[in-house]
């Protein structure tokens, strides 16, 4: 049972890892993007539809990436150029994503998916316990394993990471050194949207294997919550994502074992878990975040 829960945690958590990594990039640059939910949905539908039309799941993943980034453009224009409120715009952008995917996704409901096949890592997948938990997944999951340390390294050890953090901590300083913080934030928001799009693509073509309206059911918002809980650290974010998905997997296992409690209440467990850990850790976290974000949070 533990093996099944952990396997489910990794399989279901990957889409949130991608979306959350994207949100870390955006928030490190000083912009919060609640449009992540919309970007995930657009990515999911684009990957699903393009996969069916072209027969290639990988073309679909690229389409998902582009779709997520395109939706993030709307957020970037309004927040960076029009000075509109970040939280309100983010929510409206998600709303736009829901509308667009409802309109264009209608024809794809119930159509067979072109799945992103699982690929067992040679040798490692044969390991007892660790094999099935970590090494019998779709290729995007392995990409996410690599993306977590890669992003950590990028943020702390590269010049790009330094510029990104500077945009979030002291944009004025960045301007003095001749770099436009607005341009950095544009790149960060597009990257964030693209990663959320990939997350959506993974969700539709590798995890749930179907498309339905609003299929992300708040996973994008969960990713935003987890970024705060993780203190803007990729590795902790991954932990949070697996915790959320693990709660879903645990719930499925408990149901299969004829647990007494209602399955609908158990389905609330992942959201309750995220809320509780967020509340427990918030006091410590808020000052660890990018300075420009604190203004958004504290008003």
């Amino acid at each position: 049972m533990i093996e099944a829960v952990l396997t489910g945690a990794v399989a279901g958590g990957t889409c949130i890892v991608f979306a959350g990594l994207g949100e870390i990039v955006a928030e490190r640059s000083g912009v919060i993007n609640l449009g992540t939910e919309g970007s995930m949905l657009c990515g999911a539908l684009a990957a699903y539809a393009v996969g069916i039309e072209t027969g290639s799941p990988w073309v679909g993943v690229v389409a998902g990436l582009v779709a997520g980034a395109v939706l993030a453009c709307v957020h970037a224009v309004l927040v960076l150029h029009r000075g509109a409120n970040q939280i309100a715009v983010g929510l409206v952008v998600s709303f736009l994503g829901i509308g667009v995917t409802a309109l264009f996704g209608q024809d794809y409901v119930g159509q067979g998916v072109v799945p992103l096949e699982t690929w067992d890592v040679p040798l490692l997948s044969k390991l007892p316990f660790l094999g099935p938990v970590l090494f019998q997944h779709d290729p995007l999951t392995y990409v996410s394993f690599l993306a977590v340390p890669a992003l950590t390294w990028m943020i702390w050890r590269t010049r790009a990471g330094l510029v990104l953090r500077a945009a979030g901590e002291g944009p004025e300083v960045l301007e003095i050194y001749g770099t436009s913080a607005r341009r950095v934030r544009w790149v960060a928001l597009l990257t964030g949207g693209a990663l959320a799009g990939v997350g959506g693509a993974q969700l539709a073509t590798a995890a749930t294997l179907n498309w339905s309206e609003q299929m992300t059911v708040g996973r994008g918002y969960v990713a935003v919550a987890l970024v705060i809980f993780a203190g803007w650290q990729p590795i902790k974010l991954a932990g949070g994502a697996y915790l959320f998905a693990g709660a879903i997997a645990l719930n499925l296992q408990l149901q299969a074992r004829g647990w007494e409690l209602s399955r609908y209440l158990l389905e609330a467990l992942p959201y309750v878990t995220v809320l509780v850990v967020l509340a427990l850790l918030s006091r410590r976290r808020i000052h660890g975040g990018p300075a420009a974000l604190e203004k958004v949070f504290e008003g």
């Binding site: 960076l80 939280i87 004025e172 420009a292 203004k295 958004v296 008003g299």
Partner: peptide
């Protein structure tokens, strides 16, 4: 200009 991005 940047200030506006964190404008509540």
């Amino acid at each position: 200009v940047l200030e506006t991005t964190s404008d509540v």
